[in-house]
């Protein structure tokens, strides 16, 4: 049980790594952005994992739920906000990418820098 629990944290760490790596090492701007969302998704996972209570249920009082143990609502609230922030960043980033493509004709970082150097 304990191992399985730790597994969540590790997956978080590895996801973080994969996303972060894509952000730093990739040259394609869209790929960077996708990496960034992976990176953020990892953090979402961390928070939600933290909020889970064993044997608990979603923190919504309902007749079906009765008097059961509830999971922690706070991380969920935080992540709701964070998801929204994430999509906003993505949208803005995509907007910038579209403009870059129009101005430069490419979305590869290296090629853009070459064009600028000329």
């Amino acid at each position: 049980m304990n191992f399985l629990g730790i597994y969540y944290y590790w997956v978080f760490a590895i996801l973080l790594m994969v996303g972060f790596y894509a952000v730093i090492a990739k040259l394609n701007l869209i790929k960077k952005l996708i990496g960034l969302s992976l990176f953020q998704a990892a953090v979402f996972l961390l928070y939600i994992t933290v909020g889970k209570v064993e044997g608990g249920t979603a923190p919504i009082f309902a007749s079906a739920a009765g008097e059961r143990l509830f999971s922690n609502p706070l991380p969920q609230v935080l992540i709701l906000t964070a998801i929204v922030v994430g999509i906003s960043t993505t949208a803005l980033g995509l907007g910038i990418i579209v403009r870059i493509k129009e101005e430069y004709g490419t979305i590869e970082e290296q090629e853009i820098q070459e064009i600028d150097r000329q």
């Binding site: 730093i24 090492a25 990739k26 040259l27 394609n28 869209i30 790929k31 996708i34 969302s37 999509i87 993505t90 949208a91 995509l94 990418i97 579209v98 493509k101 129009e102 490419t106 979305i107 590869e108 970082e109 290296q110 090629e111």
Partner: peptide
């Protein structure tokens, strides 16, 4: 976000050129 990515993708290239920096 899939819809947004697709619409951005429709406006730009679909392939990476150089994979890594």
């Amino acid at each position: 976000s899939t819809v947004l990515y697709l619409s951005a993708l429709a406006l730009s290239a679909q392939h990476e050129h150089a994979p890594y920096s």
